[in-house]
Design a protein around this nucleic acid. Structure first.
Lengths: 223, 223
DNA sequence: AGCTTTATTTTGATCTGTCAAAATGTATCC
DNA sequence: GGATACATTTTGACAGATCAAAATAAAGCT
């Protein structure tokens, strides 16, 4: 059984690798993701490499092996299903569940996970719109536009909110920006770094370009 | 926050103290309950004493302080509510849930616990009939007879099964000995160490005196 | 009392996971 | 092309939790 620390390093390696085309994760990024000093990450990565979970290219970065990816996906699946459970069944605030799931993902067995998955109706995404890896280890990675890049003055549907901080999620919710909700960009001021949106009931509000980039959208179905 | 190891030592100290009138738990019993060698338990208990969670009387044993008891009860509450959730909601086998809860009890927050408690309807006991400590830290400790001590040829109701091993629980279930079920002792042969029971549909079967002592009963209501 | 058994404590070592700070590569910029 | 900046790795130390085995205390038995 991998330890909690090992599971965390692998999970963050997976998440960081997703957002970097060559899949090579720099040591420093991993260190700050798992909140340790760089030297600690180096030490740990060497031992993960010895265990065959990652490949370490000194001074360049690391990538998951097939086995490391399998473990990481299992942890991610637990994390996201637990989040879904906490929001859908226990009715907890979506801004808090990330922290809770961070602990539970390491304590839940595969047997419990399967029951939970069935109870929730085999969901494809968690409450933030993040895809839930399948039991077989498939992880959908569709490419979406964001509020920072989508067409303006076209009705969009929020599909994913890629920020786990409670503050951001609370803000997003206050503006009705939950997965499934409608949104429309009415103006985008690049020099000012501002995106202006209009909510369904006509209200306008602004987000920074950085914040807008964390909200993924798809053109609304006009069927 | 207490570590997982600390929570385990405290939980087992509480459980062992319950079954010993003076509340003084011998080091050896604690060591085998947490599955470490005696020397390890001594070391740990000294540090728990430094932290004010237990009182250590060298070579005599240890007892919980008020603070230690508070922590232990909280862990026990988590354990038993999680077991109840796994059986009642996820429909898992009652023989397996103990092991699962052993992990989850250390990962679940008080916030999640409260929601879970509400979802389950504030149960008073877990699926084995073990009492669930209240939020305030009250732990019912009613005294019951067992199949080894109750009146014979009188209809009894099972209230609790005080053995967590999967084997024992599977056996108990096979004989219909779950909390709430009816049971009747038709004969008790002390020299042979055997208790003969009759199930509701007339079937007879035997248990050892030791096994029978782990099944708590109350006279069936004849209302 | 003296000897033996048993429980407990001590001692010395190990394994994980971590940090601080020094050493070392690598990249970048005149 | 050399000085500088930055990321990474190495080194030495430490805390938590554990074990094996030796030392010690207590209890029990002739």
């Amino acid at each position: 059984m991998p330890t909690i620390a090992v599971e965390n390093y692998l999970k963050h390696t997976l998440l960081l690798a997703e957002r970097s085309r060559d899949g090579l994760v720099p040591m420093g990024e991993l260190a700050s993701a798992v909140a340790v000093v760089p030297g600690t990450a180096t030490t740990m990565v060497k031992s993960l490499a010895d265990a065959g979970l990652v490949v370490h290219q000194p001074r360049r970065g690391l990538r998951l092996t097939a086995e490391g990816r399998r473990v990481a996906l299992n942890v991610l699946r637990k994390h996201r299903l637990v989040e879904t459970f906490l929001v859908n069944v226990l009715k907890m605030d979506w801004a808090q569940v990330h922290t809770e799931a961070e602990q539970l993902e390491h304590a839940i067995s595969d047997a419990v996970l399967d029951r939970l998955d069935a109870l929730l109706g085999h969901p494809a995404t968690d409450p933030h719109g993040d895809p839930i890896p399948s039991v077989e280890g498939a992880l959908s990675s569709a490419v979406y536009a964001t509020l920072a890049t989508c067409a303006t003055n076209v009705s969009q549907r929020v599909v994913r909110v890629t920020d786990q901080s409670a503050d951001f999620l609370t803000l997003a919710e206050a503006h009705g920006l939950r997965p499934g909700a409608a949104a429309r960009v009415v103006d985008r001021n690049l020099p000012a770094g501002l995106v202006t949106l209009r909510h369904s009931r006509g209200k306008r509000f602004a987000l920074s370009l950085a914040a807008a980039g964390r909200i993924w959208v798809a053109p609304a179905e006009t069927a």
